[in-house]
Every structure is written in C-alpha cells, then in structure tokens.
Design a protein around this nucleic acid. Structure first.
Lengths: 220, 220
DNA sequence: TCCTTATCGAGAATTTTATATCGAGAAAAA
DNA sequence: TTTTTCTCGATATAAAATTCTCGATAAGGA
C-alpha cells in the first residue's frame, strides 16, 4: 500500500466491543471525578476494569481525545469526549411501547437523560392505562403512535411488549418514521434497510452467566 | 505444530459471541416448534436472523448436536441441546438484591424459570418492603442475606440496587458463598477470583444504539 | 542539568471470530 | 434407478479484535 492510499483510507466504523466498553470507562471516570483526581492513565483504567492498557488506549482514541505521556488523560475532558462520541449530550426524544413491568421500570428510571434518552410518551393497548401517566410520562393509545411519531420527528423507539406483539410494534414505529429501535422483546425483528435495531435481550446476558457458571461448577 | 500437539489441544471454551447467539436461535426454534415443523437448516436460521449459515452451524456444533444433510437439525432435539448447554434445564435458585422498579419488574417476569433461574428471595433495606412479598417472592432484610445464602447454598445473585450500593451488595453475596453475579448496576464490581460477574448494563447496549444512530443521521 | 520512570501512540504480531470452499451424504425429483 | 438439489461439517481463508513491542516524551527527582 502506498502512502497516498493509506491517507485515503476511509474512517473505520467503531468496533462494537469498543462501544460497549466506553460506558464502563465512563462510569469509572465519573467516580474518579468525584474523588477529585484530575487525570488518569490507561494503565489505571485497565487494571481497575480488568482490561488491557493498549485496548483502553485504542478505545479512547476512537473518541478523538489525546493523552500525554507520564500523566495520561484529563478526566473531565475524557468524560466529555466519550459522552460526545456516544451522542449522550444531545438528549433525544423517544417513544416507549409497552407499559408492562419492564416498561414501567424503564419509565421509572430517572437517569436515561444522562444517556441521551428522554421518554416523551408511552404507548399501550390496555384501556386501563391509556390516559394516565407513569412516572410523569403520558400513556397513549397505540392508534396515535404513527401519527404522533411523524409529527414529533421521533428517532428512537423502545419496545418492551411481549414477544407476540413486538413485530407489530416495530412496524408501527417504522411507519412513524423511527430510525432506531431498542428491542427488549425476545424475538428477531424484521425491519427495512436503514433502521437500526439493538437487541437488549436479557436472556443473552443470562446465557453467558449460566453457561459459565455450570462450566465452573463442573470443574470443582 | 506437530500432529501430536494438535491432538492434545485442550477443548476451547465457548466464545462469548456464540453464547449470546444461542438464545436467539432458541427463541426462533421455539416459535418454529409451535408451527409444527420437525426440522430446520442452518441456512434457514441464518436467513431468518441475518447471520451466516456457517456461523450458525459452528455455534450449534458447540452444543454437541449433529445434523443431517439435506434436512438439517431436528428442532426438538436442537432446543433441548441448547437448553442443556446453557444449563437452563437445571433450575438454579437465586437471590435478588434491590426491589426498586427494575428489581420488581424482574420478580414480576414469570419466565425466568425458562432460563434456569428461580428467585427464592429478594432483599432490601427499605423497612416498608421487608416482610412483604413481591409477586410471591418474599422480601427480606439485608441482614439475613449472608446467613441465608450460606444455608441455602445459593449460587447466583442478581444485583438491581443503585450504583452506590452495588459493591456492598456484591460483598454480602460473596460472603454468603455466591458463585455468580448478574449485575444491573452501572458500576464495575470488584470480586475475588472465581466469582463470575456478568454485567447486564443497559447503558452498554444503549451506547451502541445512540452512537450508530448519530453516525447514521450525520450521513444524511 | 541529567537521569529515571511512567505513559502515550504507532505499528507489528497474535489470537479470536467470521466467512468461503468443497467433498460427502441424504432426500426428492426425474 | 439415476440425477438433481440441498445441507452438513471439515478445512482453509479472511477479517476483526486483542495484545505486544518500542521509540518518543513529559514529569519528577538526583
């Protein structure tokens, strides 16, 4: 590869493993900020979280910040850089579909604004819930979803309905012009090209745990 | 590497990506079982979930089942094989710490037995909650956690407390002899060697979504 | 001022994970 | 029966992610 070709290389998309680690750095960094520390090294972060220092540096590099030898990274700057990179500084309005126990819990978790998410409305089919509010978020009829999503230019939809209803919920969100879906239903959603789906399925995480545990116990 | 060395290679641990995909196969397979289908090919699974057929076959291989040319895999057998592999057939008793909105939602989700988990008790510091039950699970004082975990030989602890209380909860669970922690608090837990921690942090999943969405929108 | 130490960041090497290729075998069609 | 088609599973290749190596550089002593 010539030098010119090297210069022309397109910017690589951020690896997903990197994206998943960044929030973990962020939590640690916010903790360190409280303690009054001004800077932190990749070595320290790595030891604290059980990663490799080079990996931490490479991850941080994606966010666009530069460190300095001997001292490392400025904590405040690094926090800002990660939040910026994840787009957690621009609070995005979102719809939540399904106000069962998980949906209710999510509406009750007051911190999503720290992660760039703001629930402006929730939707449900249950007549008992429509018209009420859950933790200050109004619950509306599903029939209003498409039109309202269009008018409000909503980009993110969160699906917390049971599996059988998930595809229909997704279809409505997409019809309403949604760009990204955070799916908690244990099912694979079929969506047109251009619509992002992130599956937050707990069972995936649980699978890792139960398998490894069984493995560990079998070795006792 | 000589042939002998090759033969002596130790059995590799299952890759985490594989463990995360297996539950997705399982959900699809259970759906197919309902429709009455008897067998399914890796090609079909792959197309349905957007994976590569070879990858699906490799994943399935880990669970120990063999398919047959032209028809693929027996659905019932495959379901059983995956569940066995993830240890979801042996229901494991678990403690849940923290009965806030998320903890309550989890106790309310009646399906964890399908994933090998059974909540036998929940713990909280809130005097108002102690002594009551949430969806049939008794809520006990944190003071009883260690002793009860020891006596009941509990292996899995689920942490759904706020971040500031998570490490203390983990310490108690570990003192009680727990082997694996499913952590929902946005914090890195420090645990001794041998204790498994699986972070189910929603923020990690959300980071992937918000970053990619911002990226996609910026390209419009 | 010079020396020692800790760290970054670039690039190489390694490991892990994903995808492609292809022979063999089973089912269905001819 | 023979041919065609589809799929598995073994092996090879490619891509992605992680880890190692090392020169450069800033900070804090000696």
């Amino acid at each position: 590869m010539t030098k010119t070709e090297k210069t022309n290389k397109k910017i690589k998309a951020t690896p997903e493993p990197t994206l998943r680690r960044l929030p973990r750095y962020l939590h640690l960094l916010k903790f360190l900020r409280e303690t009054g520390d001004k800077s932190v090294s990749s070595t320290y972060i790595a030891k604290e979280l059980g990663f490799d220092p080079t990996q931490v540096r490479k991850d941080i590099e994606y966010t666009g910040i530069v460190g300095r030898p001997k001292t490392g990274f400025n904590i405040v700057e690094l926090i800002s850089s990660i939040e910026e990179f994840l787009n957690w500084k621009n609070i995005t309005d979102a719809f939540l579909v399904g106000t069962g126990s998980l949906g209710t819990a999510m509406l009750g978790y007051g911190r999503f604004k720290d992660y760039g998410l703001n629930f402006v409305a929730a939707f449900d089919n249950n007549e008992m819930k429509i018209g009420k509010t859950i933790h200050e978020t109004p619950v509306l009829s599903m029939e209003k979803l498409v039109d309202l999503a269009k008018r409000m230019h909503i980009n993110i939809g969160v699906i917390t309905v049971p599996a059988f209803a998930a595809q229909h919920s997704a279809d409505l969100l997409i019809e309403g012009g949604i760009r990204a879906i955070w799916n908690f239903a244990p099912i694979h959603l079929k969506v047109p090209e251009g619509v992002l789906v992130e599956n937050a399925q707990l069972t995936q995480s649980l699978a890792v745990l139960t398998h490894k545990l069984a493995d560990a116990i079998s070795k006792d």
